[in-house]
């Protein structure tokens, strides 16, 4: 059994072509992260979400020779899962959603900070309002907000995941924040 823990994701992806053990290590590193992503972005049951993640990993393995090592493996994995999730939405005739939990406290603080809302002023009502607004905005803005604040991805990574220019990511984030701010004012 080869030692895999000290290898980077990108090295593991390269070695996966010759031995599935390396790919197994990649799956172990990302299965929970991607499962959380799918569950948060859809109303899928746990079983459905696991199927989406499983199909995504099979696609990654089939296309491992297409992995561009100049990209981060995580961006590529998110991209494939994101596309698989879109296929799932189509089959289910549903739309992307955002399922939040109590553990997202820090995320709301981060969003509020980005919108110049003082941390101290962040009442429970405000968090609830932000959550409600995020859930109703256009999925293309919801997606970038989710990846930026909930998954803590950089602009470059979001661009690689959604396959859009980094400039477009910046524009969408800025518009999303504006919508949030305006909606929040209207709310209060």
């Amino acid at each position: 059994m080869p030692e895999t823990s000290n290898l980077t994701d990108e090295e593991l992806a390269k070695l996966s072509v010759s031995d599935t053990v390396y790919f197994g290590e990649l799956i172990s590193r990302y299965d929970k992260i991607l499962l959380r992503y799918v569950i948060r972005r859809s109303h899928a049951t746990k079983e459905d979400a696991e199927d989406v993640v499983q199909n995504s990993f099979i696609k990654m393995y089939r296309n491992i020779n297409d992995f561009d090592t100049t990209l981060r493996f995580s961006s590529w994995a998110y991209r494939i899962t994101h596309n698989e999730l879109i296929d799932w939405y189509r089959k289910q005739k549903s739309r992307p959603q955002l399922i939040l939990s109590d553990k997202d406290e820090d995320v709301f603080a981060s969003i509020a900070g980005d919108m110049n809302i003082e941390k101290e002023a962040m009442a429970n009502e405000t968090k609830k309002e932000i959550e409600d607004i995020i859930k109703t905005i256009d999925p293309k803005y919801q997606e970038v907000i989710y990846l930026r604040f909930f998954e803590d991805k950089s602009y470059e990574e979001i661009a690689d995941i959604l396959q859009i220019p980094p400039g477009t990511v910046a524009i969408r984030l800025s518009r999303a924040k504006k919508i949030l701010q305006e909606s929040l004012q209207a709310y209060s």
Partner: peptide, 19 residues
């Protein structure tokens, strides 16, 4: 999940597409 996926890859003899 990791074991299920690896079993599927082996069971269905899934191979990476050629470069």
């Amino acid at each position: 999940i990791p074991q299920t996926i690896l079993n599927k890859i082996k069971g269905e003899n899934i191979k990476p597409r050629a470069r």
